[in-house]
Design a protein around this nucleic acid. Structure first.
Lengths: 129, 129
DNA sequence: TAACTAAGAAATTCTTAGCCC
DNA sequence: GGGCTAAGAATTTCTTAGTTA
């Protein structure tokens, strides 16, 4: 069930196995294994896949037929703006860190924030990637 | 994350570990392992747990705060699990970063994640939550 | 009764590499 | 490039039993 759903929605999102693999930090072989039922993703990977594909784990597992992410109300996401899926994944993981590592993550973000400021208010030029 | 949610909603449903174990055809030891983070349920078991507890896999995995099996809008401020407020703030800040700085933030979090993993492999020092 | 943990057996996944189209 | 699969290594889960409150 998961295998069919995963392949279906990956194609629907216009991603290759390699592309999806990169988003969730694994290899194309592993994605292929999922899609052919040779293995099943861990819970953490399942979450990451749902994030990367903008769907729900219930959809991937076949508990619902709704493939969109409408029920998404995670506490640290705001409904207003588009968010980098990779960033979402990173922060979900960070929320499970030890206190010490969480603090380090926050400190580093704050450091980056200062750097952004220092660069001067510049309108983001999306000429990359 | 799953461990907290599982324990929470099991109690909310008035079930003992033994009772839940019987519903999903496993042993109380296995349920205890889930709730204490010593192991994680397979995808199939995850589905069964969501069924038995009348909730969703997205809730059990912490992707949504809706604990009922019916899709319903809920404000994101009421959350069952304690998310670090500072981390939430940092997350919102990082969302506005330039692509480059966002990538750096993600990379750093991934680095911390590897560190957490390595730590977890060590012999338990009874200093864990 | 209810819940937690240790230890080993058992089962699974992941990685690497090669193959096909 | 895009996708599939084999085989062994690596990792994880499950079971049983004992322990605690």
């Amino acid at each position: 069930m998961l295998s069919k759903r995963l392949k279906l929605i990956r194609n629907r999102r216009g991603l290759t196995q390699t592309g999806l693999a990169h988003k969730v930090k694994t290899t194309k072989g592993t994605i292929s294994n999922y899609e052919n039922g040779h293995s099943t993703p861990s819970n953490e990977m399942l979450r990451d896949l749902a994030d990367a594909l903008d769907t729900t784990t219930d959809y991937l597992l076949g508990r619902t037929d709704i493939d969109t992410n409408v029920s998404r109300t995670v506490s640290y996401s705001e409904s207003d703006f588009e968010t980098d899926p990779d960033l979402q994944i990173a922060f979900r993981e960070a929320s499970d860190f030890s206190e010490e590592n969480r603090k380090q993550a926050i400190d580093f973000i704050n450091y980056l924030k200062e750097k952004e400021k220092a660069k001067g208010r510049k309108i983001p030029n999306s000429s990359d990637e």
